[in-house]
């Protein structure tokens, strides 16, 4: 993928190479079109510290991907870049093959269909579980619409369906502040679903969960992955194995290894920097 940057640096006036470049670029573009998320040559640094270093990452439509890596590998920063919280210093970030995400901010990216769950569960603690979901439901985000909004049967049904999916129906009217840690994680995933996104970015969904809850969450995510593209960041290798999807290992802001869980976990570089011997 790095040669793409090289191609673009070539002067357009040089005719012969331009022809060759076009076909190459067309290949690149057609590859990009097939992806739901496309990151190429992305770098970002904070005060001289390179959090992301020439990172390239592709997520196919409908794919579920797990991302592992040691602390500071750039997992969360990568999500920040995709969701518009952090602007990359260089590199390309495309959504759905065509939308340049570096040109949009968080709300715009969220309404395009990229949902994100934070590392630390953040739900609206002042609201009930139901209201949390109602606020997240897909629909107009304008202020006037919110003021004059009336909830209809369709929305009720959708909320009920999500409550069922995340197994919180019995807590519909409970205050979100009173939920357990695991329930908050699920509620947040439920809010993601309510947004009806095309891609879900899920950051450490099982941190602090019991084994039973972890298992349940894996099942939930697999359910969701049936009709969404999902990126899961997680440290829990057992959980990642449970998901049974392609794994990307990040290290120092770039991809260290990519492939099936068995391939990645036996990669000596991964063992060296992350898993330990």
């Amino acid at each position: 993928m790095n040669d793409m940057a090289m191609i673009e640096e070539r002067p357009l006036a040089a005719k012969a190479p331009q022809h060759a470049a076009l076909t190459e670029r067309e290949v690149q573009e057609s590859r990009r079109k097939e992806t739901i998320l496309y990151l190429d040559g992305v770098s970002v640094s904070f005060d001289g510290f390179r959090a992301i270093n020439n990172l390239s990452f592709l997520l196919g439509k409908g794919e579920m991907r797990a991302i592992i890596g040691p602390n500071g590998a750039g997992k969360t920063t990568m999500m920040d870049i995709v969701t518009g919280k952090t602007r990359p210093d260089e590199g390309e970030v495309f959504f759905n093959g065509t939308v340049d995400l570096t040109k949009h901010d968080e709300p715009a990216i969220a309404t395009m269909g990229i949902g994100r769950k934070f590392q630390k569960p953040t739900v609206f603690e002042g609201h009930t579980v139901e209201d949390n979901l109602a606020l997240a439901l897909a629909g107009s985000r304008s202020i006037l619409a919110a003021i004059f909004h009336r909830r209809d049967a369709e929305e009720e049904a959708r909320i009920a369906e999500i409550l069922d999916t995340i197994r919180l129906t019995h807590l519909r009217d409970a205050s979100a502040a009173n939920l357990s840690h695991g329930q908050k994680q699920w509620l947040e995933i439920g809010m993601l679903l309510a947004q009806d996104p095309k891609v879900l970015l899920v950051d450490e969904p099982v941190a602090g969960m019991t084994d039973a809850e972890t298992e349940e969450t894996a099942r939930l995510l697999r359910d969701i992955a049936r009709d969404h593209s999902v990126v899961v960041v997680e440290h829990d290798m057992g959980f990642v194995r449970d998901l049974g999807v392609k794994v990307t290992c990040l290290h120092e802001g770039s991809v260290l290894s990519e492939g099936s869980i068995d391939n990645v976990s036996s990669d000596p570089k991964v063992v060296e920097v992350y898993l330990g011997r």
Binding site: P107, A110, T111, R116, T122, E125, L135, A136, Q195
Partner: peptide
């Protein structure tokens, strides 16, 4: 309560 969250769900 959670300004960042509202932004990430599109408000």
């Amino acid at each position: 309560d959670a300004e960042a969250r509202t932004r990430f769900i599109g408000y």
